[in-house]
């Protein structure tokens, strides 16, 4: 009697498990299908792709072509430089601003913070016209700087780090005051390490944000020497699409790999950090 109950329960669990794995696999397949297809075709000769065939001789030829015949490496380098510089600068300026809003006593502190908060409502996309003119006036067009300077700080970054710094127990600050730590020392030795998950989250957010910039670099850069990768792909696509699908797919694959690496390394921090920021 007990045995039959046990076996039945066991059977139920087995069937349920099979169903769960089936569902997971189907969903996973749908999610990564465009990705797999892109990677797969990047190894096929363009002549095959143009016939609509998904088989043929696999080779690295498209990748060799992408590296030798297109400036894809230059695009990647441009994006890497821009994203890394922007990420560190953004972290620094946003974190000191957040520090000021949490640990400094000064007039109009809350008012100024609301001003910063208000800028979160203003979409950059609605401001490109004057910003373009400003960049032209400052002779920044077609230069790395134009893709970094407007994003040196962000209301979102300040807001997020302010939330993180507010979690630091006041006792620590008071105890540091008693010990005579300067603001720089407290910022560097306590505030930053204490909020490292938020810092790493913002770093990943900032890097990916910069890496994925599209409209602004498209308006402000005109040469392959400076073009970041998203606009590089746009360029390649408009030049090659009708003729060379294999090359395009290989270039896209080359572009997607660095971000995937960043993503999987930072994922753990991303998860906890984002939830901290969003739900609290």
């Amino acid at each position: 009697m007990e045995n039959t109950i046990a076996t039945q329960a066991n059977l139920h669990r087995r069937v349920g498990l099979v169903f769960k794995y089936l569902l997971l696999s189907v969903l996973a397949f749908i999610v990564i299908f465009p990705f797999i297809l892109g990677l797969w075709t990047s190894f096929l000769p363009t002549t095959q792709i143009a016939k609509g065939a998904l088989h043929g001789t696999m080779s690295w030829q498209n990748y060799v072509d992408a590296f030798t015949q297109t400036p894809i490496l230059r695009y990647l380098l441009n994006s890497l430089v821009i994203s890394v510089v922007q990420m560190f600068a953004h972290l620094f300026f946003a974190s000191i601003a957040a520090y000021a809003f949490v640990f400094l006593e000064f007039k109009y502190r809350d008012l100024l913070f609301y001003v910063v908060l208000a800028t979160m409502m203003l979409p950059f996309e609605a401001e490109v016209i004057p910003n373009f003119q400003t960049a032209r006036t400052l002779h920044l067009l077609n230069h790395y700087a134009v893709m970094i300077i407007p994003f040196l700080t962000s209301a979102f970054g300040i807001f997020m780090l302010r939330q993180a710094f507010k979690q630091i127990p006041l006792d620590l600050k008071e105890s540091a005051d008693v010990d005579g730590l300067s603001h720089w020392q407290f910022y560097w030795k306590v505030a930053l390490p204490y909020s490292r998950i938020s810092i790493l989250t913002l770093a990943a957010y900032s890097f990916l944000g910069s890496w994925n910039q599209y409209l602004w670099p498209m308006l402000t850069t005109f040469t392959n020497r400076l073009r970041p990768v998203q606009d590089g792909l746009r360029q390649l696509h408009s030049e090659e699409t009708a003729t060379n699908w294999g090359l395009i797919q290989a270039s896209a694959a080359i572009v997607v790999i660095p971000t995937l690496i960043v993503l999987f390394i930072g994922q753990h921090y991303f998860k906890s950090g984002l939830n901290e920021g969003s739900v609290k």
Partner: peptide, 20 residues
């Protein structure tokens, strides 16, 4: 991990994959 994968795919790459 697979479910988070599209986070790493940028606008232009997505557009190219889907255009195809």
């Amino acid at each position: 991990t697979i479910f988070t994968a599209t986070m790493g795919v940028s606008v232009s790459v997505s557009a190219i994959f889907w255009l195809f």
